[in-house]
Design a protein around this nucleic acid. Structure first.
Lengths: 347, 347
DNA sequence: TTTTAGCACTTAACTTAATGGAGTGCTAAC
DNA sequence: GTTAGCACTCCATTAAGTTAAGTGCTAAAA
């Protein structure tokens, strides 16, 4: 367990601040000017040597200034940093852009990602509150003529998922009606997870009473269901990659773009955030592509409706203090907005 | 009007080929080796000087090899190039990937863009056949409970457009039923364009019989309608920008990405392709951002269902011969597949 | 009249050398 | 424990030199 003196702590803090703002290694001379204590650069140098021994700062070459190491950022985030109060103007932006009327949870969550990435110039992922509490509240099949049928699934949160299918010739719309009624009787009100489970076990057998060949129908129902039940991240500010990636290696950026395009990957990247706001720096992120970046994840609670995630990807040299402040603001505002939304549909 | 001798033509052709393949300026010595005639490099140099006088090739500096000018590419495309027969393997890929079952025209068209960009490593836009022939064949409002209604619009081509709305408290699902019947009576069978026109003139008056405040409903209907009637390009192979853009200027790539993200811009970029396959090179493209690239556009005919567009964006130094061959293949295969599709729904 | 060999000349790209600036570690004195 | 002083290191930038590819031109050959 590392413990720093007051002075060392101030020096580390200044190095982190200067480097995240200026982007160039920080030397003893520039530090001596901005630090509140009146000591010489040689003293600072001695302290810096000690910080380096502890592994908190490193040199880029033998005679360069220092930059924080991953361990240094870690210490800074854990022990030194205080979250910055969110700028009043930023807060206005957040509240205003979440103030409008939304028709889907996904829209709210996506909007949040876009705003956060705009405020930070970084890249954002958001995940809606967990669906484990989501229940099936309606299922419809609407014949559209021309062999086509639209399947619509509604959850108790007001989420709607739909898909259009071409049905085989030997299956008329009328024939499906009792099936829908059967589904309604058996499955309405159940959590989506349970529906998914039943769909694989009991339903196929019982469905045989109504249809000779229930496979086609099950495929339809399963497809819409899994679309509604799957965890999909929304990614905002992809173009901001141009702001903070190295640009030296186009291959890397390309890989990052691909990673962000496949939203199902992101669950692995983000993992299961335990604490409320979690900062992972450099190689602390399990994905190798992101070993030179930092990831801040926050969960937000929407009471009995579960938790959602909002995450921020940026350079390791990011202004953590401001970022964590912002994440906190989103945690609160997003939870509030979603509670409003649910209340509307729960009434 | 420029006329080249046989020999000059061969030289220009070789320069274009070498440069599009190798990417480096072409000198007289390397030309003399691969050209079928037996002359010295000095002779080639004389001819090259003449081609330069004509503005068909240029030097990158006073003593460099030559690269084709835009005028040179133009001449090559117009007078020298013969479309390359599509590689058998490529054709297989195309046919196989369009051979599956599709549920929407948009899916077919999007798939084509993806395949083309994969085969070329460039970027592709596709536009579905014009919608002016598209007619309204069904309109539904499905109440989902909880103040929500899904509006579904179906066209005679089997295209389905839908959107979910929150309805005001003072409007129940039942009240909307006569409205839908009214819509069905008045508008079914009309081209979408006409529907759009009527929506602005006659309908609001007549609708007043059924609803005190028809504005809300009209907004819903209009929104779904315009979604169905709008021209939306699908863009494939955005990541391929990394393959052929300069990478020197990250700002430029960022702008390009933005351009491709706003699909409504693309109509202006592509313009109205007149001929069957049109090649626009460098500053011949009206958009300034694309002045260093080439754009090949092709229209494909789907008989009475109108024309669609497929377009390819790449570097000016692209292998035009192969590309034009590929575009031709897509013209044919796409028309064929879509005719199949329409036939299925027309029967 | 066209083609060719020969040669002086140009330029980009690469290598090497020189210089200045920022910063460090260490020592000896305060 | 702190400081001044100094030798040392390394990056970044500039300058100079070298090479390879290619050109245009001239005068002779075909």
């Amino acid at each position: 367990m590392i413990t720093l003196t007051e002075r060392q702590s101030l020096i580390l803090k200044a190095i982190v601040r200067d480097y995240t703002e200026g982007g160039t290694p920080v030397g003893s001379k520039s530090l001596v000017q901005e630090l509140p204590m009146k000591v010489s650069s040689a003293t600072i140098r001695n302290e810096m040597a000690r910080l380096e021994d502890l592994g908190l700062i490193v040199k880029t070459h033998l005679s360069s200034g220092r930059i924080p190491s991953i361990k240094g950022y870690r210490y800074y985030v854990d022990h030194i940093l205080t979250p910055e109060k969110v700028d009043n103007r930023d807060l206005k932006v957040i509240q205003h852009s979440l103030g409008g009327e939304f028709h889907k949870i996904d829209e709210i969550v996506a909007q949040s990602a876009d705003i956060l990435s705009q405020l930070t110039s970084y890249t954002t992922f958001t995940l809606r509150p967990e669906l484990k509490d989501s229940r099936l509240s309606g299922f419809r099949l609407v014949p559209l003529g021309n062999h086509q049928v639209m399947a619509i699934l509604v959850t108790n949160n007001g989420d709607v998922e739909n898909q259009t299918f071409t049905i085989p010739n030997d299956l008329s719309g009328d024939e499906l009606e009792p099936v829908v009624r059967f589904i309604d009787d058996q499955l309405i009100g159940l959590p989506l997870q349970d529906v998914l489970a039943k769909l694989q076990k009991e339903i196929p057998l019982k469905l045989a009473h109504y249809l000779q060949n229930p496979d086609g129908f099950l495929a339809i129902f399963g497809s819409v269901l899994s679309k509604a039940a799957s965890e999909r991240f929304y990614v905002g500010g992809k173009l901001n990659l141009f702001n903070y990636t190295s640009l030296q290696d186009p291959k890397e950026m390309r890989s990052l773009y691909s990673l962000l395009d496949q939203t199902d990957n992101l669950a692995n990247v983000i993992g299961t955030p335990g604490q409320h706001i979690q900062v992972r720096i450099g190689n602390e992120i399990t994905n190798d592509l992101l070993k030179d970046y930092s990831l801040i994840t926050a969960t937000y609670d929407v009471d009995q409706h579960g938790q959602g995630i909002i995450a921020l990807l940026g350079p390791t040299a990011m202004p953590y203090s401001r970022m964590i402040g912002l994440m906190g603001a989103f945690q609160r505002e997003l939870a509030r907005k979603l509670l409003d939304y649910y209340r509307y549909f729960d009434e």
